[in-house]
């Protein structure tokens, strides 16, 4: 919303998977929050993307129908995990290319959890190696033209300030880089936004006042140490505070901030 608020046409693309527990699905292409704004939201459904792709290749409606059947989808996805990821990205590339009837300046992809982001993004390359000719290979090339163009495509790795999340974020950061995919920043979300000065901490500890404040401060210290570890490798991290009691307003403020961070890291100019 940050970018949208400044008048650029932005689309938020969520990927709806079918193997990692179902997430809520929306109608594709509605406007977030129903407000008049230029932020559009798309949901790319893995199963539908695969069905669309197969229909476009084999032109048999019944094959696509079979694919929508969950058992068939599950076995296909298991048999060729990369293909599912490839067609998902191909659907994203369609939106980016304006093939869904609208043009956008910025597309924000809400990628799956860290363990699956790299397989998703590198799937086209792997699939193309296995199946070098034909429609699948063409789709893979088209997707890679998008994914490997640092002027077009960049990743923001998002983590909460917790040991495991930070380790995973760093792993993902490294593997994206070594795969040759542009990374712009690590974004640390849900940060505790206050800490004590040395003087305050010492005074509270000595007088045994407010164990709460000392506890809170120790936790934000732990977060700072994690962030330092991240920044050693990734350069300055983007930081977002924790919003408690998620109201709709807080949530859209959060999205706005993420988008504006993204815009900055991609050097988008909205003026």
């Amino acid at each position: 919303m940050g970018a949208a608020a400044r008048g650029s046409r932005t689309a938020l693309v969520r990927i709806h998977g079918h193997d990692a527990g179902s997430r809520p699905s929306h109608d594709a292409g509605h406007t977030a929050g129903g407000e008049p704004s230029s932020l559009r939201e798309f949901v790319v459904d893995e199963r539908e993307a695969l069905a669309d792709f197969v229909t476009s290749v084999v032109r048999f409606g019944f094959v696509a129908k079979r694919l929508l059947d969950s058992r068939t989808f599950a076995s296909l996805a298991a048999a060729a995990p990369g293909v599912k990821d490839l067609v998902t990205l191909a659907a994203v590339a369609d939106i980016a290319a304006g093939k869904r009837g609208e043009e956008f300046d910025l597309l924000v992809i809400d990628a799956p959890a860290s363990g699956h982001s790299l397989p998703l993004l590198t799937a086209p390359t792997q699939v193309a190696e296995l199946i070098p000719f034909g429609p699948v290979a063409t789709a893979a090339r088209r997707v890679n033209e998008m994914v490997y163009d640092p002027c077009l495509f960049s990743c923001v790795v998002v983590a909460i300030a917790e040991e495991l999340a930070a380790t995973e974020a760093l792993d993902l950061w490294r593997s994206l880089r070594s795969a040759g995919i542009e990374t712009s920043a690590i974004l640390v979300n849900r940060l505790l936004n206050e800490s004590l000065t040395d003087g305050q901490r010492a005074w509270l500890a000595k007088k045994r006042v407010s164990p709460d404040a000392l506890y809170y401060d120790a936790n934000s210290m732990r977060q700072r140490i994690l962030i330092e570890r991240l920044e050693e490798e990734s350069g300055p991290a983007l930081k977002l505070p924790e919003y408690r009691g998620k109201t709709a307003a807080a949530e859209s403020a959060e999205i706005a901030e993420i988008l504006s961070c993204l815009g900055k890291s991609l050097n988008l100019d909205y003026s």
């Binding site: 505790l192 206050e194 004590l196 000065t197 003087g199 305050q200 005074w203 509270l204 007088k207 006042v209 407010s210 709460d212 404040a213 506890y215 809170y216 401060d217 408690r244 009691g245």
Partner: peptide
């Protein structure tokens, strides 16, 4: 009252932290 004599700014930050933790506890 508890923070009488504390360094400047302590009251505000402690109140904020205690309120945050209270809302964590409620959740």
């Amino acid at each position: 009252q508890r923070l009488r004599g504390a360094p400047r700014g302590t009251l505000a930050v402690v109140e904020h932290m205690e309120a945050e933790l209270d809302s964590c506890r409620a959740r």
